[in-house]
Lab assay of single mutants.
Amino acid sequence: DRHTIHIGDITIHLEGFSEEELKLAEELIKRGIHLEEVKRILEELYR
C-alpha cells in the first residue's frame, strides 16, 4: 500500500505504514526531523 504525506509543496511517499504511523511521521517531519530519522523511529516503534 502507498501513502502520501503533503507538507507545503513537498510530497513524501511512504509505503507499508498504517494511518497512525503516517500521522506520527508527518508530525515529526513538520517538527524538522530528517526523513531518515523518521523512518528509523517508525521502524523501532512499530516493527
Rank of each mutant, 00 (worst) to 15 (best):
R47N: 15
I10S: 08
I29R: 01
I41N: 01
R31W: 15
E37K: 05
L24Y: 14
I10P: 03
D1E: 03
G32D: 03
H6P: 03
S18L: 13
H34E: 10
G16A: 07
L24F: 11
V38M: 04
I5R: 00
E21M: 14
I33Y: 11
L28V: 02
I33Q: 03
I33S: 04
T11Q: 12
D1M: 00
I41C: 04
K39V: 15
E36M: 06
E26S: 10
H13K: 11
K39H: 07
S18R: 07
L28A: 02
T11C: 05
Y46P: 01
L45M: 03
E44K: 02
F17Q: 02
E36P: 08
H3D: 13
I5G: 04
G32T: 04
I12D: 04
I7P: 05
I10H: 11
I33R: 03
L45I: 15
D9Y: 10
E43W: 15
L45P: 00
E15H: 12
E36I: 09
Y46C: 15
I10A: 02
L14I: 09
I41H: 02
K30E: 06
K39E: 06
E15P: 13
D1T: 02
I10Q: 13
R40C: 01
K23M: 13
R47W: 15
L35P: 14
E43D: 13
K39P: 01
I12E: 03
K30L: 13
L28N: 00
E15S: 12
L22G: 06
G8Q: 06
H13L: 10
K30H: 09
D1Y: 01
F17D: 03
E19L: 13
I33D: 04
I12W: 08
R47L: 15
I29A: 03
H13F: 13
Y46V: 09
R31F: 13
F17W: 11
E19A: 11
L45V: 07
E19P: 07
D1V: 01
I5T: 04
I41P: 00
T11I: 13
E37S: 03
E21S: 06
T11M: 13
L35E: 06
R2L: 13
K30R: 15
H3G: 12
E44T: 01
L35N: 03
E21I: 14
H13W: 11
I10R: 03
L45F: 06
G8E: 08
D9S: 12
L45A: 08
H34P: 14
H34V: 10
E26D: 08
I41E: 03
R31A: 14
I7N: 07
R47A: 15
E26Y: 15
H6R: 03
R31L: 15
T4M: 04
E27A: 10
R2M: 15
E36A: 08
R47Y: 10
E21T: 10
H13D: 12
I10C: 07
H34S: 12
R2W: 12
K23L: 10
H3A: 05
K23Y: 07
I41A: 05
D9R: 01
E20C: 13
K39Q: 11
E21V: 13
E26V: 14
H3V: 15
A25L: 13
R31M: 11
E19C: 12
K23D: 05
G32P: 04
T11H: 11
V38T: 00
L22A: 09
G32M: 07
R31E: 10
I41L: 10
E20V: 06
E19N: 08
S18C: 09
L22F: 10
H13C: 02
L14Q: 02
L22P: 00
L42S: 00
I5S: 05
K23H: 12
D9E: 13
G16W: 08
L14K: 01
E44D: 12
K39C: 12
G8Y: 08
D9L: 13
L14C: 13
E37Y: 05
I7W: 14
I10M: 12
R31V: 11
R2Q: 14
V38Q: 00
I12R: 02
E20P: 06
E21H: 11
R47D: 13
G8V: 08
D9A: 14
L14D: 02
L28D: 00
E26A: 10
R40S: 07
R2Y: 14
H13I: 14
H34G: 14
H13Q: 12
E15D: 11
E44V: 04
E37G: 03
L22Y: 13
H6C: 12
D9N: 13
K39Y: 14
I33V: 12
G8N: 11
D1S: 01
E36C: 05
R40K: 11
K23T: 09
R47P: 15
A25M: 11
K23P: 02
L35R: 02
L24V: 15
E44I: 07
G8P: 05
K39D: 02
D9K: 03
H13E: 10
K23N: 06
G8S: 08
I7G: 05
H34Q: 13
H34M: 08
E36T: 08
E43M: 05
G32H: 04
H34R: 10
E43A: 04
L45C: 07
E27P: 01
F17Y: 14
E19V: 12
I29C: 12
I7C: 02
R40M: 09
A25E: 01
Y46Q: 13
E21Q: 06
D1H: 06
L28C: 02
H3K: 01
E19Q: 13
E44W: 09
Y46K: 11
L24R: 03
L28K: 00
L22I: 12
E27R: 08
I5F: 02
I5M: 07
L24T: 14
I12S: 07
R31D: 08
L22W: 10
R2E: 13
E20I: 06
R40H: 10
L35A: 09
H6M: 13
I33P: 02
E43I: 11
T4V: 10
G32S: 03
E36N: 07
G16D: 04
R2I: 13
T11L: 09
L35D: 03
E44N: 02
L42P: 00
H6A: 12
E15G: 10
R40A: 12
E21G: 12
K39L: 15
T4Q: 14
K39G: 04
L14P: 01
S18V: 05
E27D: 09
A25C: 03
E26Q: 10
L42E: 00
I29F: 10
G16N: 10
I12C: 02
T11A: 10
G16Y: 08
L45Y: 08
L24S: 05
H3Y: 09
K30V: 12
L28H: 01
R31I: 07
G8K: 06
K23F: 09
L45G: 02
D1L: 02
I29D: 00
L24E: 04
I12A: 09
F17E: 03
Y46R: 15
E27I: 11
G8R: 01
